[in-house]
Amino acid sequence: MQSVRYLPQHQSAIEGLLDDVPFKSSIWQWQFEAMAGDEGFDPVVIEKDGRIIGFNGVIPADVLYRGESVAALWSCDFYVDVTCRGQGVGRFIKQTLVKKSPLIMTFGVSEAAAQVLKRIGWVQATDVYHYRYTRLWRKPRYLAMQLLQRFNLLRGLWRRAVPFDCNLQWTESLPEAVEVDALWQRVEAGYQKVVRRNYRYLNWRYQQHPLASYRFLCARDSNRGELLGMLVVREHHGIVRLVDWVGALKDEVLPRAMIRDCLFHYRAAHQFTATTTSATGFSQALTDLGFFPSRTRPAFFVTSCLPQDQDPAQGWFLTAGDSDGEFLQAARNHYQATGMGKGEYANS
């Protein structure tokens, strides 16, 4: 087997490997090519006897990493032909992948993929949590969740009393690019490791997605009208996902006001979810308003060859929007809602 340079004619064969993603052709250009830059889409493609047997997609990421800009990669869509599994193809794919960037991340991987990553030295974060908030009070199996939720609400009661004067507005589109970029420039110095939430990224990630619709809750200063923060939300069948947060890392007051408004705005929803790292204002705000961490944690892995990088998986700010699993689930929800197909997505 050998690694070969990706060519457009490979797409159909690669989609054949992704047999659990029937809508892949509809998001291929957006996911893989829109942000690829001048060098073009450069995934790992493994060929044997003229047949493609393995694939690992990549998405470029503009990362702020300990005060420096790093051209990193997200690893996604890791697949091995079913007839070739257990033969070292997965390891070969990952060994080829790490040559493409000094910093590579993957978020929300399957257990099988996680085992491969651990064996070849990728590092897993220990501070990523999936939070839930439920309104399914009448089901006995939710009793423990109800008790934990109420405990968090009581514990955070004194925090919620802090006043905050801002205007909150729900919109179907992002604010103007100049406003979004100005917001990010003001707050990014507070982050240690993060994918830059500038307009170019947010526009691609949330507004240009061909099979998903997101809403934006914008907070503005009551006097100056200055953009202070944004919450990105997606709703499907009564489940509201708090997909992304853009604002000051340690600010608890603003995200608390915005999450509270979200709970009221979607008062008919029966469940809310959010994924993020701990020790941030956003995670504290979630806890104060009754959200509780689930037992299972999302798997976030990093491999780095940056100088003196001893702990590459710690110190990140992450949300569900960083995971390809979220935008693939959004695509699948649309796919199912339009009657084009059925089934659950299993992120690999």
Rank of each mutant, 00 (worst) to 15 (best):
S110H: 10
G90W: 00
P8D: 13
H10R: 08
V109L: 04
G50Q: 07
S75H: 09
Q95T: 14
F107I: 03
C76R: 05
Y65H: 09
W74M: 08
V89P: 15
Q9K: 08
D19E: 07
V45Y: 04
V58F: 02
E15H: 10
V82E: 13
D62V: 12
W28C: 02
G37E: 07
C76T: 15
T96C: 15
W74F: 13
K99I: 05
F32N: 02
K24R: 14
S26K: 09
G57Y: 02
D62L: 13
F41T: 05
Y65E: 02
A34P: 02
A34M: 07
A61F: 10
G57L: 00
L64E: 14
A71Y: 10
T83G: 12
L103I: 04
L7Q: 14
G40W: 09
R51V: 11
H10K: 09
R91F: 03
K100F: 01
Y6N: 03
G16S: 10
V89Q: 12
T96I: 03
T83D: 14
V58Y: 02
M105I: 05
A61E: 11
I59V: 13
D19L: 03
K100A: 03
F92D: 01
G40P: 01
C76I: 11
D42V: 03
V109Y: 12
K94V: 15
G16T: 09
G57E: 00
G57W: 01
S101E: 00
D49T: 06
M105V: 10
I46D: 03
P60G: 05
S25I: 06
G108H: 07
A61Y: 07
L17F: 14
I93G: 04
K48S: 15
T106V: 13
G54P: 00
F32H: 08
M35S: 11
I27M: 06
D49P: 00
H10E: 02
V82C: 12
G67P: 01
I52P: 11
M35D: 10
D81I: 00
D38M: 04
E47G: 02
L18N: 12
V70D: 05
Y6I: 01
L103P: 01
D42Q: 11
Q11N: 15
G37V: 06
V109S: 13
I53S: 06
C76S: 14
G108R: 04
V21Y: 08
H10M: 04
V109Q: 09
V44R: 12
V82T: 13
G90L: 00
I59G: 05
D62H: 12
L7C: 15
S69C: 10
L7D: 15
L103Y: 08
L73Q: 08
P22Q: 09
V70W: 11
Y65Q: 05
E68Y: 08
